[in-house]
Design a protein around this nucleic acid. Sequence first.
DNA 1: TATGAATGAGGCTTCATTCAT
DNA 2: AATGAATGAAGCCTCATTCAT
Lengths: 222, 222, 222, 222
Amino acid sequence: MSKPRARPAAQTRSKQTCEKLMAALERLLREKDFDTIGVAELAQEAGVAVGTVYRRFENKQALVPLLFDLWRDRSREQLSHAAITEDDIAQSDLRSLLRRQIRAAHAFICEQAHILRAVHLQGRLRPDLIGEDWKDLWDEARAGNRAFLDLVKDRIARDDLDRAADTMIYLANTALVEKALYGKDGAGHVMRLEGQAFADEMADVIYAYLTLPEVSSDTAAP
Amino acid sequence: MSKPRARPAAQTRSKQTCEKLMAALERLLREKDFDTIGVAELAQEAGVAVGTVYRRFENKQALVPLLFDLWRDRSREQLSHAAITEDDIAQSDLRSLLRRQIRAAHAFICEQAHILRAVHLQGRLRPDLIGEDWKDLWDEARAGNRAFLDLVKDRIARDDLDRAADTMIYLANTALVEKALYGKDGAGHVMRLEGQAFADEMADVIYAYLTLPEVSSDTAAP
Amino acid sequence: MSKPRARPAAQTRSKQTCEKLMAALERLLREKDFDTIGVAELAQEAGVAVGTVYRRFENKQALVPLLFDLWRDRSREQLSHAAITEDDIAQSDLRSLLRRQIRAAHAFICEQAHILRAVHLQGRLRPDLIGEDWKDLWDEARAGNRAFLDLVKDRIARDDLDRAADTMIYLANTALVEKALYGKDGAGHVMRLEGQAFADEMADVIYAYLTLPEVSSDTAAP
Amino acid sequence: MSKPRARPAAQTRSKQTCEKLMAALERLLREKDFDTIGVAELAQEAGVAVGTVYRRFENKQALVPLLFDLWRDRSREQLSHAAITEDDIAQSDLRSLLRRQIRAAHAFICEQAHILRAVHLQGRLRPDLIGEDWKDLWDEARAGNRAFLDLVKDRIARDDLDRAADTMIYLANTALVEKALYGKDGAGHVMRLEGQAFADEMADVIYAYLTLPEVSSDTAAP
DNA sequence: TATGAATGAGGCTTCATTCAT
DNA sequence: AATGAATGAAGCCTCATTCAT
């Protein structure tokens, strides 16, 4: 049950097969859940034989890490496009900056929802399949966010910027993802704001948090 | 494919069997995912025969709505225990009130994580099984929260209390649930605060949001 | 696997139960096949408990002989009503007599098709359940028919009346039953005549047969 | 609930498997009823795995149409062998011609009884599985018979040859099939003639019918 | 005696994986 | 290397029958 890896695909044809399979998988994920996609179905969609899938992947589960890689790559690409420049920081107020970022993140998640949904669900159903990779990506995101906070640290009220970075990332992810992936089927039902208005609301939540003065955490009674 | 219902269980023995099955299911859910629990396995854990499961439930899926009912009942019970009195409101500041509530909610979710995890996942995998019931519960929670906001409306900066209630419920749910259900396997990894400190942080997020003055939503550039 | 019998039903209540069950069975047989009627379904239709069925009948199969008895009783009753009197014989020609009889038989079979269908099918699926009883009824029918032929023997061309009686009964049964029980789903499809016209055609077949002079059976080449 | 079809079997191995399965099914049908043959049993008899059955057939019911095809193919083959030539017609009298044909049909039905029994029963239990195919075959048989009657029309007394063809086919089928399939377990019990003598008797019935002058159908009293 | 909940063997079907071609 | 037929364990569900109340 150790984490299955994709087999090496040194050869050209192999790489093509691998790509065909991932493309087919992505296409199918727009319509149905990973668990309900059969290997035969995937092979057919990719235009290869079942056996060919198993020449490339140890088993069906081995596709999950590759899906994660797909997500990570796109994720990084989007981050690089959406990067905040020093100019931005100089010219915009924090609230606007956050809105811009959260809107972009929200749009990106919505576009890639089919991938993220699979990664999300499989990551929870079989944590061993993605495991460390997730953590690395989270740490990366945290670091980027921490750097951003440093640039705007004089506009925020938090003392502990590390902690603020954690909370901000955590909020952005959980809150945006829930509605983007499951829409009104889950907690998204209560949140009546949609699209950009929703993203802005979440940005405001983060803005509010960042600008709230800290309090010693034992203020409240147990 | 319409929502399967549990069969009525008027008799004493039937009710006992039904309870044995739900108890067994709950026990198993602490160890594994709903989808990986076989009917035979459930029957054995409950100490009954396979056929007995099917006398009570139309099929395996029919257990899901009952799980939801379980969650709802416990949820309501916890809400009634945790209800804020007028005294509380008079004596405590808003931040403390929120912390108390969020701590209680967090503790409750952690205790019941095995149930909620199943309901959560199944609700996303097969929305038709729970569907409207979820929505009712959400609306209930929203209404309760809205009433609470009314009691403290002079301490918060939001103009639109309905929207504030929505956002607050949404945040509390997505943020608390993610970490409680999946711990470090998901986005919870970035959030290094644990237990009560985590709950307090989330309470502060909500506090910050509630006390942040509203802004016309077109302030930010598109 | 020996032929199961109904348990004796000495008591009044028992007899009532038995009757309720048979009536329910008959009602259900108008809608579906014996094999697809479950014991629970039967019990419910009869308004008794499943266990009660098993107090009266050793098992489900034990209903089949009773169904046969039902058929036999009604069959005898119809035969007694439709009996040909000496007057009839004196006043009608053979062709008309046969038509009258076959029409009556046809009408009767159509009315009782639900019973006969079950008896027919079950008798073929599990010959041991009805076995000898069938034979007795056939012999009875043959004897009656033989007596009839005796009364009209001067109008028919057959030498061997026994054999003629056999053939006549056999024809009447197979030909009428097929269409009455299965309509257009079976061989009935080719026979485009319906209702009385169909019955008359079959009567004519028999009439033709009875009036055809015999030929030594080795006329034809092997 | 639409008619299940066998999957296409282009490859050599597939065709072999398919043949192994049909052969095994035919073997089993000599011993027991279609409904009592389990898929596992069939697979074992064919020397393949259970899953292999389902690669070829959508489900167990999909075997029924194939059984019908088997019957039809053999049926057609027998018809082509038994075809009456013009020479036959010129040289033999009608009674002999009919005997020859009915004997052949009877022998054929007896040989193939195991197939026909299954097709017959399943066709009645689940008419949708065979449905139109039956009708086509019947119509084919009717047309052939009609052509035959045309060739001998000057030797028969019937005016309406279409109707005569219908009745002849209907009689031949119902009467021959009953005894061939169920022997003494059904109506066959009354018919004490066996084998060729039985076939000849049925041929005579048809001969008698064909040579009987028609009568307006309202001769008989209601 | 009646009840109906419980039983569990057995049937059908799926699908990830293997392997002969 | 690719193919896709074959495999068979494992899952779901049914229903005739039993038995405690």
